[in-house]
């Protein structure tokens, strides 16, 4: 494979889903923080809650659509984030080499990774489980707080809060690293492709085992 070639990392369906996540989860995170601390006036808090509810509906529609329209991608994603090996422990031992790179300007050996590195896999697990819990608890808190067992609604409130905090914190890290890995950022936001060389370095297992040249693709 030529060195100046680009390879497709994020297909259109994934990029579309990601756009919807940006449009729904970012407002959800911001309004969620406001709803927790309640710093605004009655009218402003009301508007905040309305935005939160509307964004929640958008998030639910985006997730449901992706699940049904790109089921193969969902299965692949789940398979990838839950495939754990010793390499993941080694990756976490050096935190993917990022602190050394960012703080010490030093490059340390990092175990070879698949399409997602161990940190991204952990983020994926949290997004999958935390996001599902957020959506489920959000609908209960919005539509049924009066009609469900009181203790259950209270539990849903706690689940919503904890999952919201965890995912918002992850979001901050995700945004930082997303911009730091600018080629991947461009791929997700624009054309879906990353340079072959970068993929070979960052996701060597993926490139070696899964990526095939278009010329070899018989489909």
């Amino acid at each position: 494979m030529s060195h100046d070639k680009m390879i497709l990392k994020h297909p259109l369906s994934v990029r579309m889903f990601h756009y919807f996540l940006i449009l729904s989860f970012l407002p959800l995170a911001v309004t969620g923080v406001l709803l927790y601390f309640k710093p605004l006036s009655d009218a402003a808090m009301h508007l905040t809650m309305q935005i939160h509810a509307a964004a929640g509906v958008a998030l639910t529609i985006a997730c449901a659509s992706f699940f049904f329209l790109a089921y193969d991608r969902v299965v692949l994603f789940i398979k990838r984030v839950f495939s754990v090996s010793l390499a993941d422990l080694k990756w976490f031992a050096v935190l993917g080499g990022y602190p050394q790179k960012l703080i010490l300007r030093k490059k340390v050996p990092v175990p070879p990774m698949g399409k997602y590195n161990s940190g991204q896999k952990l983020f994926g697990i949290f997004v999958l489980i935390g996001g599902s819990l957020l959506i489920l608890s959000g609908w209960i808190l919005w539509g049924f707080p009066h009609a469900m067992p009181r203790g259950f609604v209270s539990l849903m409130g706690d689940v919503h809060l904890i999952a919201g905090i965890v995912l918002t914190l992850f979001l901050c890290v995700h945004l930082f690293l997303g911009v730091y890995m600018f080629d991947d950022f461009k791929a997700m936001i624009l054309h879906g492709k990353i340079p072959y060389e970068e993929a070979r370095e960052m996701s060597s297992l993926w490139v070696r085992k899964e990526v095939i040249p278009i010329s070899e693709n018989k489909c």
């Binding site: 006036s41 009655d42 009218a43 808090m45 009301h46 905040t48 809650m49 939160h52």
Partner: peptide, 11 residues
């Protein structure tokens, strides 16, 4: 009696 004040989302 609608005695609860405060909009949805507000205290």
């Amino acid at each position: 009696t609608g005695a609860i004040t405060g909009s949805f989302g507000a205290t």
